[in-house]
Design a protein around this nucleic acid. Sequence first.
DNA 1: GTCTATACTTGGATAGAC
DNA 2: GTCTATCCAAGTATAGAC
Lengths: 191, 191
Amino acid sequence: MDMRERLIESTRELLWERGYVGTSPRAIQERSGAGQGSMYHHFRGKPDLALAAITRSAEDLRARAEAELSGGGTPLERVVTYLRRERDALRGCPVGRLTQDPDVMADPALRRPVEETFSWLRGRLAGVLAQAQAGGELAAAPDPAATATALVAVLQGGYVLARAAADAEVYAQAIDGALGLLVPAAPPRSR
Amino acid sequence: MDMRERLIESTRELLWERGYVGTSPRAIQERSGAGQGSMYHHFRGKPDLALAAITRSAEDLRARAEAELSGGGTPLERVVTYLRRERDALRGCPVGRLTQDPDVMADPALRRPVEETFSWLRGRLAGVLAQAQAGGELAAAPDPAATATALVAVLQGGYVLARAAADAEVYAQAIDGALGLLVPAAPPRSR
DNA sequence: GTCTATACTTGGATAGAC
DNA sequence: GTCTATCCAAGTATAGAC
């Protein structure tokens, strides 16, 4: 992995762990093993580096979700697969996290990937939910768009609650609760 | 309002807007109108000030929730009242926000009010949901604790999505989606 | 491309006068 | 209780040598 790549990856980790304000160029240099000059050779400064890192995280999230939502099984099965995917609950979401960073949200360039990621995700999930309704797997009543937004919110909020409790099980409980409402006959998670 | 109180309130606002790392003693002094000496007279430093502010925010959240969850109406009505309460969606939750702050979560004293607040809220809501089930307002099937956690997660995640979209309506959509699953016959929000 | 030196600002706090 | 002066580390960069 070349230096540029290492810088991006280190920045991704630090943004995830500590957010934008909490991430200093120094810390990035230490974690990546790059020197001062090297970092400023590859990137113009912290915002430039952050843009590369955020873009990368956003692409990542989208690629995984797309793989599961367009994967095998019935529409409802794919939704469940997506929701139940193993996640590092205590680390939280590398993209959702950024919404709490005022400096990120204040910069249109940094903000854009965050906005687009969730806008896409909500829409994509709503589409699969609509398919599930069309196929009779789900009741026809609830609005797919609202349901999709609620489900994505459960994921994001599940991270918050798991971190508050310092317990990844709380995240799993949030997902269980949501699935219990979405699929009344759903088998409970094995414990 | 005396100076001590102004310092606490200013710190609360700043923690809410910018988080712990993003909040400097200088900024607190400017917002509160206190001088250097005044601030360090009333508080021993940033962590001490943050503790006072966080405790205050936690008490606030709890008091409001308790008022609604123990207020008038049937159990299910009280849950709906709580979920539909007017909230400043783009500002987010002053307590939930702190879970993203590594320095807060790393300090047991600062972390405690956050942990206790959500632990209490999930339990309290679960209790009211159980009442609603006992009274026949809700289906008996879903586990009240899991459902409660999912609903609180929708709130917290709704803030995340609303901020990502820079649109408070997204928050409302998340709540609508959750209520649509919880109460299949619920009347849609008036628009 | 990477290193070292340098620079200026801000963060976070202490000391002592009033 | 509040003010001013002072302090040292860290944040964020630029300049120029290698």
